[in-house]
Amino acid sequence: MSPLGTALRAGWSRGLIELRQSFTNGGDLFNHFFWPVLMLIVLFLMRDVSFGSSGFELGTLMLPSVLGMNAAMAMIAMSQLLTAEREDGTLLRAKATPHGMAGYLVGKIVSVSGGLIADLAIFLIPGLLIVPGLTIGSAEAWLTLAWVLALGLVATLPIGAVLGSVFTNARAQGLLLLPVLGMIAISGVFYPITSLPEWTQWIAQLFPVYWLALGMRSALLPESAVAVEIGESWRQAEMIGVLGVWTVLGLLLAPIVLRRMARRESGSRVAERRERALQRIG
């Protein structure tokens, strides 16, 4: 096997090990359950709240939207991991081995994707028992959910790698949360986007969260629910187009930014960041 193939195989194994460890570590286990349980509570409270005269409960409309939101948030998880492991020297160690960065990224993709699928299952399985009206009895619904999720991961994980390369320390990641929360607020996750001002609808349609939520709704909601969407259409072709643009953008930028970041990493930089972190703790 070639050195690159060996590195990629090692990255795959590393990703599976990290994923398994995340379910045996108390802090990681809490993170896996916290947001799904919180969203389930919100879903329970909204299960009997109707959206206007549409005949649909907000809980029913919200469940697939939250799935799409969580899929898009994989980019935040990727970004935070890259920033944290850049700060503690993990990336420097990966850089020091042949094709180490390629293996490292494969490992992160495996662990982040696997963790996301587990989080979605933790939310979805109880959610199906809480809200009625979902089209979960057909193979087409689950097939659509699967390809939308796969497309969403391909579109968002490279962007997460870019963001993780831009931020130099974990504290700076906090700057990313406010715009992300704002993006979620206008993307029709917790309330149909057609009830929001038109200018916010146009902004939301530029980003992956709206399209991933729409794709999940097209998979799990009955056809009649399309009446509350923009243009009364699931717009799957447009969704593929927008997420495709984000995929191309991420795949073009991520290798450039990651190579530049790796070249700048050194033992002295890691030691300097560690010293600053110890001073903050002290």
Rank of each mutant, 00 (worst) to 15 (best):
L43M: 12
P158L: 05
D28L: 10
G115K: 09
G182D: 01
A150E: 03
F56R: 10
E18D: 12
P158Q: 02
G282E: 11
A204T: 05
L249Q: 08
E87W: 06
L278D: 09
L249N: 03
M39W: 12
Y191L: 08
P3Y: 10
V110T: 12
E265T: 03
A74L: 07
G188W: 00
R274T: 11
A74F: 08
M46C: 04
L40N: 00
S2Y: 14
V42D: 00
R260V: 09
P126N: 04
V148P: 02
L82K: 02
S13C: 06
L43P: 01
S195V: 06
G231H: 06
A102H: 14
L29M: 14
W142I: 11
I186A: 04
E18Y: 14
V257P: 03
L16I: 13
G188Y: 03
W211I: 01
G68I: 05
L129M: 09
W246V: 03
I193Q: 12
V37D: 00
A227Q: 11
G164I: 03
G5T: 14
D88H: 12
L92Y: 10
A262D: 07
T135C: 05
S79Q: 13
V270E: 07
S187I: 05
L43Q: 05
T168A: 11
G107P: 09
L91K: 01
S165C: 13
F34M: 06
I122R: 01
